[in-house]
Nucleic acid binder design. Structure first.
Lengths: 352, 352
DNA sequence: AATTCACGAGAAAACGTTTTCTGAAAGCAC
DNA sequence: GTGCTTTCAGAAAACGTTTTCTCGTGAATT
């Protein structure tokens, strides 16, 4: 400090507004303690909201203010041995369903003083495993996970021993909290809706990456059988080309379906593309229905005749996120409570 | 440890596969060191990839494997005084532009061993300030920020003294790295496109929350003036109702515009809604153009006549995220390099 | 052959907090 | 007034790493 020249007094050089604050390291709890004339422990207690002498508390708060002290969360987590971070691992951040859920999760978490690390796996089990491990290393309080299909094979608990809440997709064998859509029933509702609209030959494209696709397919087939419809269900991988190719065969063959069901919003777009490639219009030539009510769906398939439109099952996205977060936070308090499975109903948005 | 009964030998109780691993705390670097028969420092060095004896390295790696050791990132950050976390603070996670950028940021960051904390401000300056402060507390390595308009007023550096890269929106006074779209020019391109298509009375709706809206509006007005078009530009707040109301007046009055320009994807949806409320069709009654090429746009406004469609400026979302992340990581290495401003061109996607 | 140098491994300090421990003062019952 | 408990603040330990320091060994140089 002597090397700083004659222009700084000891006081200036040391504190506040002086050399150290401006140029060197961040201010720590000890600096606050020194300014307030108390011990570091007392500062910690004030900040934690524990009972301390009122005069001291005021001095500490003033010192925090004047020094611009910001606690180091890494140190806090290390010592206190618990973290305010929750991990949110989704399969596809571009899917509006997941962004909507993410937003809801973030809002609820922030309101309870938790921060969210959002991880995007792109349906890649390797990335998923990497992120689960990362959450472990981060010692995250818990994880909200939309698991990929491959994970089903693993019987081990994901993310070490920390609480996990599954969303959107189940892991059949696992004993974990989850909040899901009533996929099978909702798919059946969709089929019944198409039947009521007079369609008799239905085809469905279902995702191959998750239990969700399987369940929706099952509901589709069950309902179609019950109604005596001519039905054809196929599972398509997540890539674009696959869906288009699968549809090309379906649409050009004899006995072309008069209605299509999409397993999710992304799939529905693939179908739209394929239909256009075939020169077919919705709903003039063929009806289209699916899952996830995206904001733009009000505006496609509105033929000149005024009818048409794409009927979908709208998922309660906000509630899914809210419920999952609440369940996770609950479990942090009661680690040994029995696991809960929440199944939510969707809402049929009938168009056309 | 004696209380555990006679079934556990000292060895079992202590390590490995025994009591401690299964029921108590996580395994630490010292446990690994003990198993490998080396010092904790050596384990640390092996994990950091520093030069160590090959035999020792093998022993350490084996010990890490057998113990299932996962380093505690909080401790690592505390001691090493630098973090592998970058904050990404966006205005609206539901806006596909931001989700696309987020995905790109996350991918690049993950490839470089960094993790991303995604923060959603919902255009709320208070939330933005809260998150910037949080990133400070987290001692994040840096922040990528899409600033809200209000932040402009603040001359102070956001997020303490850590590196910040701005995306999508500038902060006029600030000397910060940023990567932006050439908004003014792109808006002009859009107007010229409409002019070439024969439209003569254009109106534009621009966001009031960011510099982006201002710039696009300026480009819109400049181009319209240069081309001698009858133009009307208005700034509308971010809420749904506003846009609809503003449009209602515009569309019902005399000299109704024959083309509309939307400042962004969200605005464009509002316009679509308003048009439908007025019973106007795109592009039959009125043309529509805007910013952000969302995947569904291929399918709306395709009238029976085959013409139509919504022309937009497609932003290079992937590159924006990639560039911003690269710039941020660069700056971590060269804190004192001059700030850079990257202005990217968009691409006109002409439809109809 | 002696001295320096480079290297690498263990011991110990340090990171910035929270928590435990300790002791003093205050309150209360006798 | 004495002895007991309670309260509260400071001192010190602890959290799990990385980094610095120290020292021993072997190679290289003179």
């Amino acid at each position: 400090m002597g090397g700083l020249g004659p222009f700084l007094t000891e006081e200036q050089a040391d504190w506040p507004g002086g050399w150290r604050e401006r140029f060197l390291m961040a201010v720590g709890i000890k600096d606050v303690a020194r300014v307030a004339g108390v011990s570091a422990a007392t500062v910690s207690r004030v900040l934690a909201g524990k009972a301390v002498d009122a005069a001291m508390q005021a001095r500490v708060l003033a010192a925090v203010e004047s020094t611009g002290y910001r606690p180091n969360l890494a140190a806090r987590r290390l010592r206190s041995r618990h973290s305010n971070v929750i991990g949110l691992i989704v399969a596809d951040i571009r899917n509006p369903f997941f962004t909507a859920v993410s937003r809801s999760v973030e809002t609820v978490a922030a309101a309870r003083g938790m921060q969210v690390i959002l991880c995007n796996t792109d349906e890649d089990p390797a990335k998923e495993a990497m992120y689960l491990d990362l959450m472990h290393q981060e010692r995250a309080a818990g994880v909200i996970l939309a698991p990929s299909r491959q994970r089903v094979a693993q019987t081990e608990r994901p993310a070490g021993e920390r609480p996990v809440v599954l969303i959107d997709r189940a892991i059949p064998g696992a004993d974990l909290d989850c909040v899901l859509l009533d996929n099978e029933r909702m798919a059946a509702v969709l089929v019944e809706h198409l039947h009521a609209r007079g369609h008799r030959r239905v085809a469905g494209l279902f995702g191959a990456m998750s239990t969700t696709g399987l369940e929706r397919r099952a509901g589709f087939e069950r309902a179609a059988a019950a109604l005596g419809l001519e039905a054809q269900a196929m599972a398509v991988p997540h890539s674009t080309g696959e869906a288009e190719r699968a549809l090309a065969g379906l649409l050009s063959g004899p006995g072309r379906p008069d209605a299509l069901v999409a397993s999710n919003g992304v799939m529905l777009l693939h179908i739209l593309r394929a239909l256009r490639a075939q020169g077919l219009s919705v709903p003039g030539d063929i009806a289209l229905a699916g899952f996830d009510n995206n904001d733009w769906m009000d505006f496609v398939g509105q033929g000149t005749c005024g009818a048409g439109g794409i009927s979908v099952i709208e998922q309660p996205v906000e509630e899914i996120g809210r419920t999952a977060t609440a369940m996770l936070l609950d479990r942090l308090d009661n680690p040994d409570a029995p696991t809960r499975k929440v199944v939510l109903a969707g809402k049929l948005v009938a168009r056309g």
